[in-house]
């Protein structure tokens, strides 16, 4: 018999505080989608294989379907809803619109959260399978493709997704240099 313990849990999501009375078996993804109305994070496989549920937990991208909500009561959680709004898009969101980095849009919030998390990994100098020099990875299209391959897109907008991320990255470097 699985545990049926229920009780109020507390979460910090997109800078807001939430309480939820949920089954302890609830995944972080189902908490967002089914209990808090934050349905921007998508369920594609519930197996950690498609990446549609990618969100940022303490700044790192994770598959929200592979972790239980109860484990994240002390974490800073950021979902697609926390990145930008229709009237005030995050630069990555705007780049996806401009480059048509989607079609059906279902994998898109996961792609965008993943891309934001991925650029942070790049900024920290983390290498990938595509890095020729593990100590000094060079950021190019191969790196984007490799690092984004945990996010499936059946509409197959991959070339446009790469274009969007390349541009958002270049813009962020520029604004850093300007600052």
């Amino acid at each position: 018999m699985l545990s049926r313990t229920e009780g109020a849990m507390h979460f910090t999501i997109n800078g807001m505080q939430y309480d939820a009375d949920i089954d302890v078996r609830t995944s972080l993804l189902d908490l967002l989608r089914e209990h808090l109305g934050l349905a921007g994070s998508k369920k594609g496989c519930d197996h950690g294989q498609c990446g549609a549920c990618t969100i940022l937990v303490n700044g790192r991208r994770i598959n929200a379907c592979l972790t239980l909500a109860v484990m994240h009561q002390d974490d800073e959680i950021v979902t697609i809803e926390g990145l930008g709004t229709i009237d005030d898009l995050h630069p990555m969101q705007a780049a996806f619109v401009q480059h048509d980095g989607y079609q059906c849009g279902y994998c898109t919030p996961g792609q965008i959260c993943s891309a934001v998390g991925m650029l942070d990994e790049v900024a920290r100098g983390w290498p990938s399978h595509a890095s020729a020099d593990l100590a000094r990875p060079i950021f190019d299209d191969d790196e984007i493709s490799e690092r984004m391959s945990g996010n499936l897109c059946r509409c197959s907008a991959y070339p446009n997704i790469v274009d969007a991320i390349r541009e958002a990255h270049a813009a962020s470097i520029e604004s850093e240099q300007a600052a």
């Binding site: 349905a39 709004t85 229709i86 898009l89 989607y102 919030p109």
Partner: peptide
């Protein structure tokens, strides 16, 4: 419909 898709709306 792009902005709605990229924001999760």
């Amino acid at each position: 419909d792009g902005p709605a898709k990229v924001t999760g709306a």
